[in-house]
Design a protein around this nucleic acid. Structure first.
Lengths: 187, 187
DNA sequence: TACTTTTTTTGATAACTATCAAAAAAGGAA
DNA sequence: TTCCTTTTTTGATAGTTATCAAAAAAAGTA
């Protein structure tokens, strides 16, 4: 649990009272590689802090699984859309490694926001942070060919290469596995 | 100014005191088509509420201007990265039409966040909202060919077609102007 | 209106990427 | 290790998109 509070403190200093309130509703979860954290069609009722492990987010399109993000240690994990809107998730979240997570329910989080402004500030800054990361990724992918997208991955998020198989990475980069393989062989 | 508070109230109810505080620091700005709101290399010190008009965000890459977003009435406009991190902007924001905007400075906004939790809540929810919109756009563009991206534009944001010239739209969709023209002619 | 400038379209070609099929390599289990 | 399964690579081909060049259409101005 300490890793979570260390992470939060980088964004917003929590008072002891806020830490106490949050600790009281945190739930430790340990699940195995291959299991699902969230499946499409269900409302995402928890946000998870990933203490150990690695997960992928994917959706089904034309009978194919399209993996479009990965999360690693110290990332927050949820179906953002479903959690925020309370509508059924369109995405699935699956463990790529055995993992240790800490969960907070939607309702508990709203209560924490109401009670502790520092926690709401953390939420605001967290949203800003994730927005900027998504924007950065969007811009790097916009109008760029497959080779450049792969080179951007090597330059900016090389840890993905070390923990995720190429099929998922190709999907993440928006190209087929064959294309990614050829790009690598000609590197 | 009323349009701004109407917009805010859809996300978070503000107390009269919060409205008063915010009104006191709002600055009305009227600028002409073609002018710049933000230019690269400078820190973005204001967030703007676009009451009337239309703007584009673009960056320079390999000697070309890449337009990657548009904003219209009731949108918040800023260089998100620069405003949040206080670092120089990498993007430019230019008026596509004469516009009326309301500006709040970074420092004033931080004070409002400190003083009025409902305003910070608005900020959090706003960030969530923009994150979801960006994610939706990202997913729709991921792994989809030019024709489908154009069809998605027609289906989800047709107002862009009515107010923006095709050259900018092609850039927004991540294709050349020639390709967009051909897609349209074969529609 | 006539003229100028900007925007959009069309044509020809080359480069890039997906698809389908199959082989090779790597990883796991007994 | 050997066998089986999964992952990655290679080959051939077709479809998609960028590029360069130029024409046509539309918009703005005197």
């Amino acid at each position: 649990m300490q890793a979570l509070f260390d992470h939060i403190s980088k964004f917003s200093k929590l008072t002891p009272a806020a830490i106490k309130s949050m600790s009281a509703v945190l739930q430790k979860i340990e699940i195995a590689k291959g299991d699902f954290l969230i499946t499409e069609g269900r409302v995402c009722n928890h946000v998870y802090f990933l203490e150990q492990g690695c997960v992928r987010g994917f959706y089904n399109h034309d009978g194919k699984e399209i993996t479009y993000w990965f999360a690693f240690e110290n990332n927050l994990v949820m179906s953002f859309y479903s959690f925020s809107t309370r509508k059924p998730s369109v995405e699935n979240i699956q463990l790529l490694e055995d993992a240790v997570l800490w969960a907070i329910s939607y309702d508990d989080l709203q209560k924490l926001y109401d009670k502790h402004p520092e926690i709401e500030r953390f939420g605001r800054l967290m949203n800003e942070h994730y927005y900027m990361m998504l924007e950065e990724r969007f811009v790097r992918n916009h109008f760029t060919d497959s080779r450049t997208r792969y080179e951007n991955l090597i330059a900016h998020t090389p840890h993905i290469l070390q923990r995720v198989s190429l099929g998922y990475i190709a999907s993440y980069l928006g190209m087929t596995q064959e294309t990614l393989s050829r790009i690598r062989s000609l590197a």
